[in-house]
Design a protein around this nucleic acid. Sequence first.
DNA 1: GTGGTATTGTTAATTAATTAACATTGGTGT
DNA 2: ACACCAATGTTAATTAATTAACAATACCAC
Lengths: 207, 207
Amino acid sequence: MKLPGKTVERLSEYRRTLMGCLGEKKNFIFSHDLAARLHITAVQVRRDLMLIGYSSVQRKGYDVKELIEKIGTVIDSDDSMNVAIIGIGNLGRAVAGYFKGKRSKLNLVASFDTDPQKINKVISGVKCYPHNDMEKIMKDLNIRIAIITVPPDYAKDIAEEAVRFGVKGILNFTTIPLNVPSWVFLEEYDMITSIEKVAFFVKENMI
Amino acid sequence: MKLPGKTVERLSEYRRTLMGCLGEKKNFIFSHDLAARLHITAVQVRRDLMLIGYSSVQRKGYDVKELIEKIGTVIDSDDSMNVAIIGIGNLGRAVAGYFKGKRSKLNLVASFDTDPQKINKVISGVKCYPHNDMEKIMKDLNIRIAIITVPPDYAKDIAEEAVRFGVKGILNFTTIPLNVPSWVFLEEYDMITSIEKVAFFVKENMI
DNA sequence: GTGGTATTGTTAATTAATTAACATTGGTGT
DNA sequence: ACACCAATGTTAATTAATTAACAATACCAC
């Protein structure tokens, strides 16, 4: 199913918000309620759901459980996908933390590092393998997604290795923009940029 | 100066890329070269620079040093701005790391936590204060930007406090969307969403 | 049952962002 | 000096994303 990236992002957020609803025993939700929780408009919610072909049966809002499942059929893969974190420093461990207790189609199955203090230990719930074994482990465990949280100087080489070893998607948290072949999906997030952006708009608001 | 958020983000990236150029003794750079390093088009670079009113004197590309300064006059505040990290766990420490060695108008001057093991210690280069002292410290140190890296359950309350204590911009790394008054600039980043987005497009590419 | 209301799904309009097109200009080579 | 080239700055066109508008429909109150 062909969807705009922005819509995919929102679907992920809808799902997590909806799971929160289940927690509070809320089984139906209106578009404007869901929208308000995410600070977007109700139209946008409805439009996104239209794109994935979901309609509510009744005018009592969306069936939370049903919608969660529908979103799952759209954005999740049929069988589960294995993920690795490369570089298990502070950021890597933080990312690993987000996987905890999440039952999903995404399995964090390995981390890699060069620090002898870390390798072969379980850190933040995931085993850390030595960087030297990356080829073997990535192929053996069939890792499809790499999250890169290494120091900037290593980013480029690590990305090339990951691609060579079969990774099909990369989430890059380093400040170095990466170059990957077109068949590898690349998402980059740059913290410094976010911080500077906040600073800019704070400054502008104050003037 | 009124600028689109996307342009501000790119300006921040331009600047960092340009600083890298200085490191490699590259004093002039063409728009297409700068663009290639960031995987965008040369037109976009030129358009962004047009928006901030920069022009190169010669056709030898942009003067790297001059452009860095120009971007600085646009996106930096005149006097420096103080920043705090709330929640100095793995993610907080990772964020703190990004400030190291950066000389900029943004000063990371404090972190806050509730863990007695952490308070009153210097962690990742920044002193950690007890959460209870947040009001005093935030006012004393004139903190304008808060980076929120606490566990999700605390996010809402922490944000409200930060706003009450004078913060004008928030960067929220928790998975809980925050509600802030209109005069506070809010930027949210959700790692899980990014990961799920990568997974979605990997899946789609494989089909 | 009927009228009114609230909410949805969808098309159309608007706005934002990106890309294309191109005239302009300094530099280069002959 | 002159013709050409390479790169820029800017306007116009295109594409993407959001928002507005509204007909359709199930529920509710009576």
